[in-house]
Design a binder for these strands. Structure first.
Length: 874
DNA sequence: GAAGTCACG
DNA sequence: ACGTACGTGACTTCT
């Protein structure tokens, strides 16, 4: 038989942890569910990661235990279990039953003792044991075969205590944890310990003497007067505390390891409980088909020879594809629906049908879609045009709440309690088994989607109007989808030979760097592996690690830069990393993405970011190198797609700070932009109290970092990192800045208060972002939400502005009858390609249109350039 | 699939 | 005392 793997969970401790770690969630039925939810999340991770053969959840039994005989006040002074938590225990037990996980409790004993006893029993046959708790006391059980997992903030983040880890962290062996508690006590269990002895002192004593007993044997050697006095006076209390903290490993349990064998959950039962508790995401994960099993039968009419009568002047339409990349996927078929019918055509039929194409092109026929950009671009790929799109389920849902980042109709629909659509994965399968099923099944699937679109439209439009977001949706996002679709199908021409030439140069340099690095290190290793690199740098060479990650030493660039002067290998590694990145992501990566037409067709995700920005995928063309010259050369491969044409690039100057000036109404900031001042220099003048001439480059650099910080929702730590100064100095900088720009300070204070009150923040065009964590009692979560509250209106309004500019530019290009094509958007810049004879016009039109996209109380400023490649637009 | 790293605004 | 800058996507390694 394979080796046993036994997982023992401390039920009460984990339930408490989950309860306090997560916000107090309530489901529709008014039951609080946060503890059950957190527990479940953790359990799922454990089952997946550890794959136990045996498992047990141990519970505390009743109020009194044998420890109360030793010390009446044991666990005294504890707050009563909150009723919101108590009510969750029955669900937890039920859930565990459904999981087929044994549970056990024993009169007079705590869960620790059950776990301790079982782990001791398992030591005999050397089984691997994992103990899981939220209580660090359990770490005393760590041994060669037993690892103790303690949950940290949240429930899924876990710290693993092996004897080695205990030694690294405390400098003592696991059994000495008991001695530590004996000396320092434990406030949460009301274990007294020795007054005046905390963790530091306890550990110092134990490192010197080894145990409580030995401390007292050597009591005369202790020179610190007060400490010695405390120890002497509390000797009995120290022994008692040690006893209380000791986990009983010989509890009279009536179960054995054999009773704990685990064969997996009863999925039916688990799904039922998830259903009862409304754990939607979990439900989906374990049983997608059950979770979304359509309730109602649907009658889909399959068209083989469509006529004009089949198409009405108002219909939902869905282009069915198996792959999410609509630019490369084949269209399988088309679903249509209105109040009276649900129809389906295979794409072969649709493509040959004049009746359908005529209907499709007629803007008077209103079309409601799930993802209009996908429809536009995929049909355009097939040489088909679609006009008259008036609803987009995906965009509308995104505007209502950007945090619902679904791309498929089934998920979007379920967000609105509409469950009559199946997941694509369920219909097509996944991985290697993914394939197109019989036409009936596709017809039904597509039919359910269009029906959902048809039925959900009024509900979601109502919601948009209620939130005063209908204009944002209808005047901004919907028209933008059409423009983006066109940009995607246009694509941008990329010269393979240029990329290959750069790639060859890189390969030569990389080979040399690699050889040099091996030479210096004295051995071959994988430079791309942070783990192996860490061993070479910090263990073999002996450099001092500056930062740690969850898994080991950090070898990130900012760390390596600090070490650069200490060893010649560092520079080579930084160089290797930089060039390696260029080669793998931008040479090899981009070459793979060039289509047969010699172009790259990225997709802009319009319903993804939390702020309203676009994102770009497959490939990402919004992060093509520019900051360093070596990388910037990549841009030389991006060229116009027609002979005699140019690329024309225009970018907003300081758009985020201009938005801040407008939104905060800070007089000085407004004045600076009206005077068209260099904003970083101006900031330096104000913060350092000097004149223009006195601003040094370091002062300007610092001011620039502060300006960035302000936009991000500043923290002293963040600024200290970016400027490599102390936190104190950073804090001083920030104070001085905010004193110089009182309007900004007022705005930042107000926005946080406002977000707490409303639960969300908004942009200039009324885009929303909900920030539920802004009222969290968890410092980190709350702080993060506060910074987000400060940043999102700025970043999001800038996104609104450039989106508006794109719509205006497309209209202007059309109105002027230009051949110019919009190709890319990179957050604050637009890239066009244009015939030479239109360049003069663009020089005028582009800045004019972009600068007047939205009238602010400060001017918007646009810089532009053109050239024969993207590299030359500088 | 997560973690680490690094490219962009 | 907490442990951080805001928003993204892609690649590599490693479990």
């Amino acid at each position: 038989m394979t080796k046993k793997k036994i997982v023992l969970l401390d039920g009460n401790s984990l339930a408490y942890r989950a309860f306090f770690a997560l916000p107090l969630l309530t489901n529709d039925s008014g039951i609080h569910t946060n503890a059950v939810y957190g527990f479940t999340m953790m359990l799922q991770n454990i089952l997946a990661d550890e794959k136990p053969t045996h498992i047990l959840v141990a519970w505390d039994a009743g109020k009194t235990t044998f420890r109360h005989k030793t010390f009446g006040e044991y666990k005294g002074g504890r707050q009563k279990t909150p009723p919101e938590l108590s009510e969750q225990f029955p669900y937890l037990r039920k859930l565990l039953t459904a999981y087929n996980i044994p549970q056990y409790e024993l009169d007079n004993y705590e869960a620790d003792d059950i776990i301790g006893t079982l782990s001791q029993l398992s030591e005999v046959d050397k089984s691997e044991v994992v103990v899981i708790s939220g209580d660090k006391d359990l770490t005393q059980l760590a041994s060669e075969h037993t690892t103790v997992f303690i949950t940290r903030k949240g429930m899924t983040d876990i710290e693993k205590y092996t004897p080695l880890h205990v030694m690294e962290k405390y400098g003592i062996e696991p059994p000495q944890i008991i001695d530590m508690k004996g000396l320092m006590g434990d406030a949460s269990d009301n274990i007294p310990g020795v007054p005046g002895v905390g963790e530091k002192t306890a550990l110092k004593l134990l490192k010197e003497y080894g145990s409580v007993e030995n401390v007292y044997k050597a009591i005369d050697k202790i020179t610190a007067k007060k400490l010695k006095e405390n120890l002497v006076e509390n000797e009995q209390q120290a022994y008692m505390s040690k006893e209380l903290a000791t986990i009983e490993v010989n509890a009279p349990i009536t179960i054995s390891v054999e009773n704990l064998s685990y064969d997996g959950p009863d999925m039916e039962q688990v799904a039922d409980i998830y259903q009862e508790l409304k754990f939607k995401t979990l439900l989906e994960k374990i049983a997608p088909q059950k979770a979304i099993e359509p309730q109602q039968a649907i009658d889909v009419g399959v068209l083989t020879n469509p006529t004009d009568e089949d198409f009405t002047d108002e219909m939902a339409i869905h282009i069915e594809m198996m792959d999410e990349n609509y630019l490369t996927a084949d269209i399988i078929g088309i679903g249509l629906a209105d109040d009276n019918q649900v129809l389906y055509m295979s794409f072969a039929v649709a493509k040959e049908s004049d009746a359908f194409k005529k209907w499709l092109q007629n803007p008077d026929n209103k079309k409601y879609t799930s993802d209009s950009k996908s429809a536009l671009a995929s049909l355009a790929n097939q040489g088909m045009a679609i006009e008259g799109i008036e609803f987009d389920l995906l965009l509308a849902t995104y505007i209502v709440n950007p945090s619902t980042s679904y791309t498929d109709v089934a998920s979007v629909a379920r967000e609105f309690e509409y469950t009559d659509v199946q997941q694509d994965e369920f219909v097509y399968g996944k991985g290697a088994k993914k394939s197109i099923p019989a036409q009936e099944a596709v017809a039904e699937h597509a039919g359910r989607k269009v029906q959902a679109i048809w039925k959900l439209r009024p509900i979601i439009e109502e919601k948009l109007k209620a939130n005063d977001q209908f204009e944002l949706y209808e005047e901004l996002e919907l028209p933008l989808a059409k423009i983006l679709g066109k940009m995607e199908s246009t694509g941008v021409k990329v010269d393979r030979d240029t990329l290959r030439a750069i790639g060859e140069e890189l390969s030569v340099k990389l080979a040399k760097l690699e050889a040099d690095i091996y030479d210096i290190a004295g051995e071959k290793f994988n430079i791309n592996s942070p783990k192996q690199l860490g061993v070479i740098l910090f263990d073999k060479i002996g450099l001092t690690p500056i930062k740690k990650t969850k898994t080991g030493y950090s070898t990130a660039a900012d760390v390596l830069e600090k070490l650069e002067s200490q060893h010649e290998i560092i520079g080579h590694i930084l160089n290797y990393r930089q060039l390696g990145k260029l080669n793998s992501t931008y040479i090899e990566g981009l070459l793979k993405e060039i289509h047969e037409d010699g172009k790259i067709h990225t997709r802009f995700q319009q319903a993804l970011t939390q702020t309203g920005r676009l994102s770009s995928i497959n490939p990402n063309l919004q992060n093509i190198p520019v900051r360093l010259e070596e990388g910037r050369k990549i841009r030389a491969a991006f060229v116009p797609s027609e002979p005699g044409w140019y690329l024309f690039a225009a970018d907003y100057s300081q758009i985020e700070l201009r938005v801040l000036a407008h939104m905060s109404q800070d007089e000085k900031l407004i004045e600076a932009f009206r005077a068209d001042a260099d904003i970083h220099t101006q900031t330096a003048m104000d913060v350092f109290g000097v004149s223009t001439e006195e601003v040094t480059s370091d002062m300007r650099r610092a001011a620039k970092a502060v300006n960035f910080g302000i936009v991000y929702g500043i923290s002293d730590y963040g600024l200290s990192q970016s400027l490599d100064i102390t936190r104190k100095d950073a804090a001083k900088f920030i104070d001085t800045y905010l004193a110089s720009f009182p309007g900004v300070k007022q705005y930042m204070d107000d926005i946080v208060v406002d977000a707490k009150m409303k639960g969300y923040v908004t942009t200039l065009m009324n885009r929303r972002r909900y920030l539920p964590e802004i009222t969290s009692s968890n410092f980190n979560l709350r702080s993060f939400a506060e910074r987000t509250a400060m940043n999102t209106p700025i970043q999001g309004s800038a996104a609104d502005i450039i989106k508006k500019a794109m719509i205006d530019m497309a209209a202007r290009i059309e109105a002027e009858g230009l051949q110019t094509r919009m190709l890319l958007q990179v957050h604050d810049e637009l890239i066009f390609e244009a015939p030479e004879d239109e360049i003069e016009k663009l020089k005028l039109i582009v800045p004019e249109v972009m600068e007047s996209a939205l009238a602010l109380d400060v001017p918007l400023k646009v810089d532009w350039a053109f050239g024969l490649s993207w590299y030359d637009t500088k």
